[in-house]
């Protein structure tokens, strides 16, 4: 049943839209494109204990595309890691929640991010520690497509299969629009899935907004197999018609009128 995660995804989209509107922040398009991915992770897949955020047996989640922080914070709030008033103070002076993912005094955040190309290497280190310790927890990391221009991603992409990190799942939010143009225009990644396969990953391509497909892809792992790369085909700005597939929503924040319209669309699903 995906009712749970779909409802979760509507709530976090609404939170994030309000957060960026209130603070005139960027990157709502990037958040909306991965909202379903992290909803399935937090509502259906990952083993975490919001009341015990440092529980040693927890699954680890890293958001390598740290600019989509608002959506992650919304998911952490909806999971019970911190109260809603934290979201309301997003990007305010003295608030724990910065515009890019920060770990400082934020329960549920494993690592800060914001500069691209860091998350996969960190995830490899965590997964390696889990493997050495024969732990049962898994490591999940969400990458953007644009950040796969970074050489550091491919250093880590070589490392993970060689070290047989079967406890590692990387999800690429492949919305096909990067910071200053489409992926096809800026630095085409295709044949993208084949690149990961050639590096030794088990690759699953999914519709990154299909909760059932995401859950099926994310649900189980063979710890003795290769690391898993989920190439999630997504739509930048997904869920708000006038934001979908528009580069400008990497930067713009909605007006109060646009927010009201966006919230209606999100609620209607």
């Amino acid at each position: 049943m995906t009712i749970e995660s779909i409802a979760f995804s509507k709530r976090i989209r609404a939170h994030a839209l309000r957060m960026v509107q209130r603070t005139n922040s960027s990157h709502i398009g990037s958040g909306l494109s991965m909202a379903d991915i992290i909803s399935v992770l937090y509502a259906k897949v990952m083993q975490v204990r919001p009341q015990e955020p440092d529980w040693a047996g927890r699954d680890r989640f890293l958001l390598s595309k740290g600019h989509a922080a608002a959506m992650l914070y919304a998911a952490l709030h909806e999971s019970g890691f911190f109260p809603q008033d934290w979201l309301e103070r997003y990007c305010e002076f003295g608030s724990p929640l910065a515009g890019h993912v920060t770990h400082c005094k934020v329960p549920g955040v494993e690592a800060s991010s914001g500069s691209l190309g860091h998350g996969l290497g960190l995830a490899c280190g965590m997964a390696l520690a889990g493997k050495v310790d024969k732990a049962s927890w898994r490591v999940f990391v969400v990458l953007s497509d644009g950040e796969c221009d970074e050489g550091s991603i491919w250093e880590a992409a070589m490392f993970a299969p060689f070290h047989k990190l079967g406890n590692l799942t990387a999800i690429v939010d492949y919305n096909k629009i990067q910071s200053f143009g489409t992926v096809a225009e800026v630095l085409d990644l295709e044949p993208f899935a084949d690149k990961w396969r050639a590096f030794g990953w088990q690759v699953t391509e999914v519709d990154g907004h299909d909760h059932a497909a995401l859950e099926a892809a994310l649900a189980t792992r063979d710890f003795n197999g290769p690391p898993h790369l989920i190439l999630a085909h997504t739509v930048k700005g997904k869920g708000v018609s006038f934001m979908e597939n528009k580069l400008m929503w990497h930067y713009k924040s909605p007006s109060p009128e646009q927010l009201a319209e966006a919230l209606k669309e999100v609620e209607a699903g």
């Binding site: 290497g121 960190l122 050495v132 880590a156 070589m158």
Partner: peptide, 26 residues
Amino acid sequence: PGRYINVGVAEQNMIGVAAGLAMACK
């Protein structure tokens, strides 16, 4: 041998992996 890794000629990843290991108490 279980605690020694030549990560290859990849310094960025070497530090990333090191930090990830450290975050898992190494």
